[in-house]
């Protein structure tokens, strides 16, 4: 059996508590608060204690979905990526970059937000980038 703990940062609120995720054979089993974290000093709230539960939930999306004949159906990555890129090319060619909007996210990492706004600004050529900081 392979047992591992990984120090990371909570995905729920802006406190940013640190904890270890426990994994046994690739399955998340528990959350252990980090005692040396200057933020939470070994404490967590109910959301943090249970944070490992949603990750491997059955309802997670496991494959890309594409709308075909009105329904969302599972497709391979290759098809989903080609569709996304081609449709974006068509919209920008016809209507210009400012016809595209991007919603970045308070839930993903800094690196990911950086890349999305880089794609919007450098590849598409628009500053239509926002996220729900206001909500």
């Amino acid at each position: 059996m392979e047992y591992k703990t990984t120090l990371t940062t909570c995905t729920y609120c802006g406190c940013g508590c640190n904890f270890y995720l426990e994994t046994l054979d690739g399955k998340l089993t528990n959350t252990i608060p980090c005692k040396t974290s200057p933020v939470n000093e070994g404490k967590l709230c109910i959301k943090g204690w249970n944070v490992h539960q949603f990750v491997q939930n059955d309802r997670r999306l496991k494959k890309p979905l594409l709308r075909k004949g009105g329904e969302l159906v599972e497709v391979e990555w290759e098809e989903a990526l080609a569709y996304t890129a081609d449709r974006l090319k068509a919209v920008t060619a016809e209507k210009g970059g400012d016809a595209v909007g991007f919603l970045a996210s308070a839930k993903v990492t800094n690196e990911e937000n950086y890349l999305l706004q880089k794609f919007a600004r450098a590849a598409i050529g628009t500053n239509n980038v926002d996220h729900c900081a206001r909500l």
Binding site: C13, A104, A106, Y114, Q117, A133
Partner: peptide, 19 residues
């Protein structure tokens, strides 16, 4: 900040007026 990485999304230029 309401959500965990609102600060980061703003810092990273996830806004219409700033890089």
């Amino acid at each position: 900040r309401g959500q965990n990485n609102v600060q980061g999304a703003c810092d990273m230029g996830g806004l219409p007026n700033v890089l």
